[in-house]
Amino acid sequence: MPDLRFDDRVVVITGGGRGLGRAYAELLSGAGARVVVNDLGVSMAGDGTAEDPAGDTVAAIVAAGGQAVANRDTVATSAGGKAIIDQALDTYGRIDVLIHNAGNVRRAPLAEMSEEIFRSVLDVHLIGGFNVLQPAFAAMCKAGYGRIVMTTSIGGLYGNYEVANYSAAKAGLIGLSHVAAIEGAPHNVMSNCIAPSAVTRMSEGVDTSQFPPLGPEFVTPAVGWLAHESCSVSGEVIAALGGRIAKAYLAETKGVWRPGWTMAEVGAQMAVIDDRQDAMTFPVVPTEAGGPHGFMKHLGASFAMARANG
């Protein structure tokens, strides 16, 4: 089966100079995409270095016969985010795909984490996600086409030790992507999250000696499909690691309705409230044209139970 092509598509990848970002850039450029490779070349803590990963990646792409330009603006400011998207529009005249991959890590126990450490990670992951998504989304809606891939994490889904900042930012990106999926649906703009696991420099300090192979090559095909015109899902979270690709989704138990509750009754009913046999899912994006999205379906299910019992 021939693989997917991105001929004439323009792709912006934040944090595209190293690790997963570089793997995405090389895969999509090799499939015909024109790529804006954004990377500041800073350390995981955000400190400046003498490295130029954006330039190095672009040089490798061009040497392989592809088309790419380097961008070294920061996603952490609105001006920087706009400059990244403007470079795609000014250089190639369009933007078809945004992959927000830029990230940093600053670890600390929650009881000891300073506001500065907390904010410094949100500024890159979550605020940075908004700073590039907003101008890209506006251009995509105007053009009537777009594919957005935001990078979340299993840490954003389930939490982890000493990364409250990272987990909060990654969870926030899911909500941001969901809104882009809802508002983008009428404009053929799809937005999804990738929850990747790969051994890259973000794994520094983690004992990976017992891990199975976790190279970027196990993640890039899923990201490539989410970025492609044939992508058939929006408002989803796809996990990819070590050869496994799965969908993570939110579900609700049917729950219990009562005309009134006391605190003690909540505790007494918790086992029934937690009964997952008839769990419900509410797709983020409407499943039919003009139909309700997940937010409204949640309200509808709750209201229906109240009316049936009231």
Score class of each variant (00 low, 15 high):
Glu252Pro: 00
Asp3Ile: 09
Lys82Pro: 00
Lys170Val: 07
Ala301Leu: 01
Trp225Val: 01
Glu183Ala: 14
Arg72Tyr: 03
Glu116Thr: 14
Arg5Glu: 09
Gln87Ser: 08
Glu26Ile: 05
Tyr158Ser: 07
Val219Ser: 10
Met140Leu: 06
Gly184Leu: 10
Met113Asn: 07
Ala181Phe: 01
Ala54Trp: 05
Lys170Asp: 09
Ser43Ile: 00
Glu229Gln: 13
Gly55Leu: 00
Glu265Tyr: 00
Glu265Trp: 00
Ile95Asn: 05
Arg244Phe: 10
His125Gln: 07
Ser177Cys: 14
Phe137Gln: 08
Arg201Gly: 02
Val58Asp: 06
Arg72Asp: 14
Ala64Ser: 12
Ile117Arg: 13
Cys193Met: 11
Arg18Phe: 02
His100Arg: 08
Met150Leu: 15
Thr220Gly: 14
Glu26Asp: 10
Ala139Val: 00
Asp56Leu: 03
Asn309Arg: 06
His293Gly: 15
Arg72Pro: 11
Met44Ile: 12
Met270Trp: 05
Ser177Lys: 09
Arg106Ile: 15
His178Tyr: 13
Val11Lys: 12
Leu157Val: 11
Ser232Thr: 08
Val266Cys: 07
Pro221His: 12
Ile182Asn: 09
Lys142Thr: 14
Cys141Phe: 02
Gly80Asn: 08
Met44His: 04
Glu26Gly: 02
Met140Gly: 09
Pro283Arg: 11
Ala264His: 03
Pro216Gly: 01
Leu122Ser: 04
Asp52Gln: 09
Met190Phe: 13
Thr49Lys: 04
Ser177Asp: 14
Ile117Pro: 00
Arg9Gln: 15
Ile174Cys: 05
Ala136Met: 03
Thr91Met: 01
Lys254Glu: 15
Arg258Met: 08
Pro186Glu: 10
His293Leu: 02
Asp275Phe: 05
Ala195Glu: 10
Pro212Cys: 01
Gly103Glu: 09
Glu252Ile: 01
Ala198Val: 08
Ala102Glu: 07
Arg147Asp: 10
Ser191Gly: 03
Pro186Lys: 05
Ser114Arg: 11
Ile61Thr: 06
Lys142Trp: 00
Asp7Met: 07
Val266Arg: 08
Leu299Trp: 06
